[in-house]
Design a binder for these strands. Structure first.
Lengths: 141, 141
DNA sequence: TATTGTTATACTCTATAACTATA
DNA sequence: TATAGTTATAGAGTATAACAATA
């Protein structure tokens, strides 16, 4: 199998896991990513959109749908009268913690066929490819 | 970096490549996947949907949009009066060939920081995780 | 004037339910 | 009756353009 086939297929396998785990709480992959971004931040709308690689108008809709479900909340920025900060609610935080644990469990299952040394080697090689992720990239966190 | 973080972030990196390459021809990831499936097959609608993990009604729309753009064509199934077979057009085949080459080039660029031996090792480990992909999985091909 | 965010609009993608035609 | 496919409908997700409020 070529490098291209192996990495492309692996990426779909991982995305499938994210999609299935999200579906258990009726969350899309982009909603999961947004919650992941908010785990360690309370960014303004524009900043959040940059983390997710989205236009500001897309971010408005994404946040509004999550807000309607009680996962995040908006608040006026104390630094800029035009700005709006986004933060997890308590319920949103619970979903993030559950999701991370569940995804970790599924990834461990996926890598089950590998020995510990092989899994470490795969992790190390994959990590080297994603080190220099530029802002604006649609990354998980 | 944990195994989960490395693999999840790598998967987003790969999806980003697919998305960017597709965008050069105004194709979504699912359109690219569909064309990839059709590279070696002329399946019926239902079969195509199973390869992509989609409901039959979603498949109808997907094929119709691609057909309108001249990438695929429908034909009545000779085996089943109810069936409809889907195949690439000449233009669709050209797009597939261009896309595969371009994705390969971008993946090679991504793995550029690795030595040949390291890239081979990564490929082998990734390939072992995706060997037993069940039908219905949203895989590339 | 420039920037932040929302709204209006349009398109893709997805599923469920109802329907048509064939098996 | 059951299956293959389409259509109607609804909703998420995305972008562009126009707008309001603030800087």
């Amino acid at each position: 199998m070529s490098t291209m086939d192996a990495l492309v297929q692996l990426s779909f396998q991982i995305q499938r896991i994210l999609s299935e785990v999200g579906a258990e709480h009726d969350l899309s992959i982009v909603q999961i990513r947004m919650l992941g971004v908010l785990r360690d931040r309370q960014p303004a709308m524009l900043e959040l959109g940059q983390h997710l690689g989205l236009d500001k108008s897309s971010t408005t809709g994404l946040v509004s749908r999550a807000e309607k479900r009680g996962l995040v909340q908006r608040s006026p920025s104390p630094y800029d009268g035009r700005g709006v900060l986004v933060a997890l609610t308590e319920q949103g935080r619970e979903v993030v913690q559950w999701g991370e644990a569940e995804i970790g469990r599924r990834i461990a299952e996926l890598t089950g066929p590998l020995s510990d040394a092989e899994r470490d080697r795969l992790t190390e090689l994959a990590a080297r490819l994603v080190r220099d992720v530029r802002p604006g990239y649609p990354i998980y966190r």
